[in-house]
Deep mutational scan, measured.
Amino acid sequence: MDVFMKGLSKAKEGVVAAAEKTKQGVAEAAGKTKEGVLYVGSKTKEGVVHGVATVAEKTKEQVTNVGGAVVTGVTAVAQKTVEGAGSIAAATGFVKKDQLGKNEEGAPQEGILEDMPVDPDNEAYEMPSEEGYQDYEPEA
């Protein structure tokens, strides 16, 4: 019985440690998101679009440190934060509304985080759909 109880105690310690790591990862992701939003706020009209992409990228980098179902929630929060940063930029006159959601080359930025393969159960990952990809044929 002692062996059984000791095993359960060790398992509990492992769960607590994993929860603490997840909590730490979420806190880091939130900190990076805040950094990115402050970065966007300090940019001029020309830099705002690039700044919004930076927020998304920093958040995406930190999301990889967070495991399990938390990833889905962090990704949703990050996307809403990026959308909010863009709205703030438009409201303050840093950028025109028609410039939001495009990178410096004018290509749409939507789907940055949505296409990231995420499995809350950590069982399997699927690649994003290939609808947006084109076949590449090298020139002879």
Rank of each mutant, 00 (worst) to 15 (best):
V26P: 00
E126A: 15
K60Q: 04
T72I: 07
P108V: 08
G41K: 02
E46C: 06
G132T: 13
V48S: 01
V40H: 02
F94T: 04
G14W: 06
V49N: 03
A140M: 07
Q79H: 06
K80C: 05
K12I: 03
M1D: 00
A124C: 14
A89N: 03
A85P: 03
V15L: 09
F94D: 03
K12Y: 03
A85V: 11
Q109H: 10
E123L: 10
N65Q: 08
A27C: 12
A78E: 01
Y133H: 10
A29L: 08
A11R: 00
K32H: 07
H50Y: 14
K32Q: 03
A56Q: 06
N65F: 09
V70H: 01
P128H: 04
A78Y: 14
A11I: 15
K102L: 13
E139P: 05
A17H: 06
A107R: 09
V52K: 01
H50L: 13
N65S: 10
E114C: 15
D135F: 09
G36R: 15
A27I: 15
T59P: 01
V15N: 00
Q99L: 14
E83A: 09
V16W: 13
Q109M: 04
A89H: 04
Q24S: 09
I88T: 03
D121R: 04
V118F: 12
T75L: 14
I88C: 05
L8Y: 01
K34T: 02
V77H: 01
D119R: 01
P138Q: 04
V66Q: 01
K34D: 00
L38P: 00
P120V: 05
A91D: 04
V77A: 08
Q99I: 12
V55H: 01
G25P: 00
A76C: 10
D119W: 04
S87C: 11
V15E: 00
V63E: 01
E46G: 10
K60C: 07
Q24W: 05
F4T: 00
E20Y: 12
A53S: 12
Q109V: 12
A29Y: 15
I112L: 05
T54F: 13
G67F: 05
A17M: 14
G67S: 08
G68Y: 01
G7S: 15
V95I: 14
T75P: 01
A29M: 13
K23E: 00
N103A: 05
D98W: 12
E104L: 08
M1L: 00
L8S: 00
H50E: 06
E83C: 04
G41P: 01
G36H: 15
A19I: 04
T33V: 14
L38F: 11
V40G: 01
A140C: 12
P108H: 08
M5E: 00
V118A: 09
A140V: 11
K58G: 00
A56S: 13
A91P: 04
